[in-house]
């Protein structure tokens, strides 16, 4: 079940990234292509088989996991910048790219690297499951390392959330409000990942479902805005919000 979810998310994200190649080659909104490409890579690295294959090639000490964390950071930062600028959330944009945002990113990144160096990270497995299975200090450190990895995406989502809620309640065209709603759901899901340490292990698939809900909501939401532009963007003045159902 989880495998199907993972591979189909990978397929969806890969398709969207592929579909952006022509416009990326024309130089239109390159960031958006990179968002989808980075997300595809991130999903690939969170599936066991490809993760192990790549990590083995990199030396087998879970360096791929560290790469995955920074791929996610880059993707979420790009999403944050584009979305706050698009939706006119000036305050949010400053919280991401201003001094506070950069400090948050630097602190989290440095703690992530420091924790990674402290872990005896031998034994490739997605999510460093084998390391935490060994128990002891390493397991605890992996827990902290995971929390640091989730902290930055959660920060960005919380910055995005108010602007998304505002957009949903606005009188903007329906596809954009739907997209904003999906992004808001995704943002909430990412924020919920902060509570993973307190989720009882018996809820096994809950963490997977929350993670993939977030990823799918972001991909579909962003793709929807793009699709709406392709559909209506040609003639800018056609959509009249007051007649939207």
């Amino acid at each position: 079940m989880i495998e199907i979810l993972q591979w189909s998310t990978l397929a969806v994200c890969g398709l969207v990234a592929g579909a952006r190649i022509p416009s990326a080659l024309r130089g239109e909104n390159l960031t958006l292509f990179w968002i989808f490409a980075l997300m595809t890579l991130a999903i690939l690295l969170s599936i066991e088989a490809p993760y192990v294959a790549i990590d083995q090639a990199l030396g087998g000490f879970n360096f791929a996991n560290l790469i995955l964390r920074f791929v996610i950071f880059a993707a979420i930062l790009c999403v944050g910048i584009r979305v706050t600028r698009g939706f006119g959330a000036t305050g949010g944009y400053r919280l991401l790219t201003g001094r506070i945002g950069m400090t948050v990113l630097a602190v989290i990144s440095l703690s992530l690297i420091a924790l990674f160096l402290m872990i005896d990270s031998e034994g490739s497995s997605a999510g460093m499951a084998r390391v935490s299975a060994r128990g002891g200090t390493d397991a605890l450190l992996v827990e902290y390392y995971g929390a640091a990895g989730r902290a930055y995406p959660a920060y960005v989502s919380l910055v995005l959330l108010p602007a998304m809620v505002r957009a949903v309640r606005s009188s903007l065209p329906l596809p954009i409000r739907t997209a904003a709603c999906l992004l808001a759901v995704g943002a909430v899901a990412i924020a919920v990942t902060l509570f993973f340490p307190v989720i009882p292990p018996s809820w096994g698939p809950a963490e997977f479902i929350i993670n993939y809900t977030a990823v799918l909501c972001f991909i579909v939401g962003l793709a929807l805005i793009w699709a709406a532009r392709v559909r209506y963007g040609g003639s800018a003045s056609t959509s009249r919000p007051s007649t939207e159902k």
Binding site: N29, R82, G86, G88, A228, V230, G233, A236
Partner: peptide
């Protein structure tokens, strides 16, 4: 008022498309 709101929405939509389309 209605026209202003529509223009504002249109501006915002264009900005969204410019950044995310």
């Amino acid at each position: 008022k209605t026209l202003k709101r529509q223009e504002h929405d249109q501006e915002q939509t264009d900005k969204i498309w410019e950044n995310l389309g």
